[in-house]
Design a protein around this nucleic acid. Structure first.
Lengths: 292, 292
DNA sequence: ATGGGAAGTGAATCCCCAT
DNA sequence: AATGGGGATTCACTTCCCA
């Protein structure tokens, strides 16, 4: 089994045009933030952000499979004391392109340092906006189940009579439950709030997300041998995680420094296949890489 | 010292017009969401929601003091498998009215509604959108400081140079260089994510938010003897909390049942002032109420 | 007073079926 | 066809009750 990990040096719009229609199962990316300062990495002025992104999202819509998903990690910046509206405008415009705005997950960032500004608190959350091409997209919910809360231990120990049958709510809300269905249940489905730490070990890229973030969405929206795309590869997290999880992946990165950095981090992984497999195969699949 | 708690039976737009300009320090409200609570409020169709709300927000802008704040609790519902866009459209239109969209807090609900669907998880967060009239609004940050978390103690114990460098690089906020200021502190400023449970025990009103929610914003944005307004008083939580915290308050409620319910809950509080003060003054201020 | 167990319920959403 | 009502599904908290 061969897992492909393609890394492309170049501009996203231009390189995306070379990819075939309906070929990607999951797109997950954290594009460069809007920034008023011109000299920072990828800084796009907030007023130009929507205009800049729409040609990219148009290509993403084309390359995504009909049952695929696009996860956009983004947060609006503060400009002149106000939150910018470019994310909202972007969602509205992308819907006009044909995207469905299915859901907005929240990434609640743990471990963010306390801060102080005169008129706002530290921003400890980001948007994870889910777009789809159709309502019938693939979602493998069982892959991300979490342990049931501690309440279950006490509640399910001794069932009362009403717990053993379907107990309809007394107020006519139409809501009912059968508590006995939960006996022995170890895991439950999560919610749309993700509580993850911020990444602390990437010193070279300014917008790194933690590995758990792409991992969670890759588990949820793809199966093995599916293809994951990150049009702003940045520090390469999406690619490394995809490879480890036996998904093909494609990354595009315009900055030669980041391109080289990802390449250098991919090469050591490649070497694993030359060493005795028993040592690594649990965490590192047999893989090959194509670097363009 | 007299704390006024005015409760008005009537339509919000109409009753707001009777209030003087620049007279309110904080507006905090949770309007009926689109298509919700049909049996009580009639339900506003998602397509009509912005149109319905704009005349209200226009009056709110007029009655709010220049240094006051408006906190709007809202969440868009799912329509045909997609999140509705009316909240985003509302923010964009309110900015055209002259509102500043200063911040968006997240209310992370500890006990979100249960359920399972093939294409989405349980919704466990709501928006708390902060609007202002000017950039120089009152904010009493010290009133909501929280005990420093254990993670921070560990983190601040061993501050490395890379910590500071990394945080500077991340967002250019200049935050990193202040990290050392936090060493030895017992309390810190909170973030823009609030983690509270919904109120499930209110038999009479279906959409009560927990007392902690208005309490937190009242502490943050008002001082004693300021005036708080809730144009959709509902179960009256904002009014009760305001009174307890020695803020004047004005509530408007269109449904006679809720109006009567709030009134009946206010009256018992009134009686406290006739009883020996020592028993209650710690939690209940000396107060008077005007019921219209 | 305290504590543990029992019981009740919430701004939900999807799917099907009836007009 | 669109639109609307009703059933099914599900988690964690809070209050109540009794020892």
């Amino acid at each position: 089994m061969e897992i492909r990990t393609d890394l492309i040096l170049g501009d996203s719009v231009k390189e995306l045009k070379k990819l075939p229609d309906n070929s990607v199962d999951l797109i997950i990316t954290s594009p460069p933030y809007a920034d008023q300062r011109k000299d920072t990495y990828g800084g796009i002025h907030p007023n130009k952000y929507v205009e800049w992104f729409l040609p990219i999202s148009k290509e993403l819509l084309r390359v995504l499979k009909p049952d695929g998903t696009f996860i956009l990690n983004i947060k609006e910046k503060v400009v002149n004391g106000e939150r910018s509206t470019y994310v909202m405008e972007l969602i509205i415009e992308m819907r006009k392109q044909g995207w469905l705005w299915t859901e907005e997950f929240i990434w609640h960032k743990k471990n963010s340092f306390p801060g102080k500004w005169p008129n706002r608190f530290r921003d400890s959350w980001e948007r994870l906006i889910q777009f789809n091409k159709s309502k019938n997209f693939n979602m493998y919910q069982d892959e991300v189940k979490i342990p049931i809360g501690d309440w279950a231990k006490g509640r399910l120990k001794n069932l009362s009579d009403t717990d053993k049958v379907r107990d309809n709510a007394k107020n006519g809300s139409g809501f009912g439950k059968n508590v006995s269905n939960w006996v022995g249940k170890e895991t439950v489905y999560p919610t749309n709030v993700l509580h993850l730490a911020t990444e602390c070990n990437n010193k070279n890229h300014s917008a790194a997300f933690p590995e758990e973030l792409p991992e969670w969405f890759i588990k949820l929206f793809t199966k093995e041998l599916d293809t994951v795309l990150d049009p702003f590869a940045g520090s390469g997290t999406t690619l490394f995680v995809s490879n480890r999880m036996k998904r093909h992946s494609i990354g595009i990165e315009i900055m030669p420094e980041y391109y080289e950095m990802i390449k250098s981090k991919i090469r050591p992984v490649e070497l694993y296949i030359l060493e005795p497999k028993t040592k690594y195969e649990k965490t590192r699949p047999e893989s090959s890489y194509a670097i363009r």
